[in-house]
Design a protein around this nucleic acid. Structure first.
Lengths: 192, 192
DNA sequence: AATTTATCTTAACTTAGTTTAAGAAAATTT
DNA sequence: AAATTTTCTTAAACTAAGTTAAGATAAATT
């Protein structure tokens, strides 16, 4: 559970009491490649912190095409917050791309921590703010950049993901077809 | 300041102490149409709560095109969170589309409230979460929907904005040109 | 009320991205 | 190691969206 503690310590560091309260509530979960921790239609019951591995959250549009909303690697949180908060059926799937180890908090545990230790409110607020800032940048990039520019930016921003993801997953994150990404990549390589 | 109080009361209601602490720190600001409360390159110094009116946050890409990142109407917050939190130059502009009345909190005031009343951590956490959920949906729509579908969805989700915004602002939010939006609108009206 | 400025539409043309299909290369599973 | 499945590439035909330019409408300012 070390990297979860370290993660929180980046913000307002936890004291012993808080570490203990967290430790007895967190559940470690090992999942295999291709395993789903959330299916469309189900209610999201856990916050999941990725200790190791790689997952993706995606949705399927009315034509059956998948679109990646988020990748989560080491030390990142992944969940469907809307579904979790409102107990509503999720529109998303969350699937492991690599075998992964998660630390999960269910709703009761999270509420307990939030209600008894204000520091968790603080820390999750700041964590959320950072995720929000990233998403706003992504929106801007998405509406303003061409496919080629967006792909280059992705490689620049997430170089470690390039080796871990098939291009088809990157295409789905950018909102373009794999065939067109192939064309884009060919174009880029011709330029050099 | 009533609607700011009401806004917070939707989450964890404020007690008298908290209302007072908030009240003496909030600054009311009246701004005219076309007035900017944030310019690119400046550091964002305030959280702004829209009491009345309408503002937009936008960025300009390398070709000089504007892209709307957010509209904020009555009872919504608007700021550049990245710039505010990290004291870094903003990449965004925030401009009033209608004459507006804002309630602003500067950094010291906000920090005071957060440090002395944990409820503000809680409330801003939940406010942030809701904004995050909306943004994730917007990302999904943006990468999965055609311009026509996106425009219809926008009208459905924000019917009150339709009468208050020129189409060119909606186009900029959707990430399409005003000319193409015109074409889309004509297409829609021909179908009925 | 008159003037200026911003917005909306149309059309012809160009470009970016999609679709379909098929084969090659790589990675996973057996 | 062989078989299967997934991923990647290419190409031709197509469609969605952008560009440029110009005139029409509407809204804001003086």
């Amino acid at each position: 559970m070390d990297n979860l503690i370290t993660h929180f310590n980046q913000y307002l560091p936890l004291n012993e009491l808080e570490v203990e309260a967290l430790g007895i509530r967190v559940i470690e979960k090992t999942i295999k490649r291709r395993q789903f921790i959330l299916n469309k239609g189900d209610t999201c019951r856990h916050y999941s912190f990725v200790s190791s591995g790689l997952l993706r959250k995606y949705a399927i549009d009315k034509n059956g095409c998948e679109f990646n909303i988020q990748f989560a690697t080491e030390n990142q949180w992944i969940q469907d917050l809307g579904s979790f908060n409102n107990n509503t059926p999720s529109q998303f799937y969350i699937e492991a791309i690599e075998p992964s180890i998660l630390f999960q908090l269910d709703k009761n545990s999270l509420l307990y921590l939030l209600q008894n230790f204000p520091k968790f409110d603080r820390n999750f607020r700041v964590i959320m703010e950072n995720k929000f800032i990233n998403l706003e940048n992504r929106i801007f990039q998405n509406i303003s950049l061409s496919a080629e520019e967006g792909y280059k930016k992705f490689l620049n921003e997430y170089p470690e993901l390039y080796n871990r993801l098939p291009n088809t997953q990157i295409a789905s994150y950018l909102g373009i077809t794999p065939e067109f990404l192939s064309k884009v990549r060919r174009n880029i390589s011709l330029k050099d």
